[in-house]
C-alpha cells in the first residue's frame, strides 16, 4: 500500500516535470513575436559546474555574499558577479539554487543543525517547495 502511494507520488511528480518543461517551451514560443524594445538581450548561459567561490569560503560567508548580492542587484542594478577566474554569474538566489537546489535539503539540513533560521524562505521559494 505504502509503496503504491510512494510510486504514484513519484510518477505524479514526473508528469508535473514534463508538464513544466513543456509549458516552459510553449511559453518561450509565445514570446517569440514580441521582442523587447530596448536594451538588446544579451543572455549567456551560466556555467553551473562550479561554485562562485571555494566551498570553505562559502560555508563561512554565503550569507554575506547573499546580502551583498541582494543589495547591489536590487538597489544598484549591478547584477553580475565576476569570479576571480573570470567566469560570470548572475547575482540571484536562483543562481545558487540552480545547482544546490538539486539537493532539496541542502539549505535546511545545515541550518537545522546550526539552529539558524534565515528568513529567505518567508518570501523566496525554497527547494522544498518546488515540484
Amino acid at each position: 500500500m505504502m509503496k503504491i502511494k510512494k510510486q504514484s507520488v513519484i510518477f505524479g511528480g514526473l508528469i508535473l516535470v514534463l508538464f513544466a518543461i513543456g509549458a516552459f517551451f510553449l511559453h518561450q514560443e509565445s514570446h517569440a513575436g514580441n521582442p523587447m524594445p530596448a536594451p538588446p538581450l544579451k543572455t549567456v548561459a551560466i556555467d553551473s559546474t562550479k561554485c562562485i567561490a571555494p566551498t570553505e569560503y562559502m560555508r563561512a560567508n554565503h550569507m554575506r555574499v547573499l546580502n551583498e548580492w541582494r543589495n547591489s542587484s536590487v538597489r544598484e542594478g549591478n547584477r553580475i558577479h565576476l569570479a576571480p577566474n573570470g567566469s560570470k554569474f548572475q547575482k540571484s538566489l536562483n543562481t545558487c539554487l540552480g545547482c544546490h537546489g538539486s539537493n532539496r535539503l541542502f539549505c535546511f539540513n545545515c541550518h537545522m543543525y546550526a539552529n539558524v533560521k534565515p528568513k529567505c524562505w518567508n518570501c523566496h521559494l525554497s527547494p522544498m517547495e518546488t515540484p
Partner: peptide, 22 residues
C-alpha cells in the same frame, strides 16, 4: 516527502542566465 528529495532534482527554479545588461 523527504525521500523524493534526492531522486528528483530541483529543476523548476528557473535557471539564471546573464541578464539583459551586464
Amino acid at each position: 516527502l523527504g525521500v523524493a528529495a534526492g531522486i528528483v532534482p530541483g529543476y523548476s527554479l528557473e535557471k539564471t542566465v546573464l541578464p539583459a545588461w551586464d
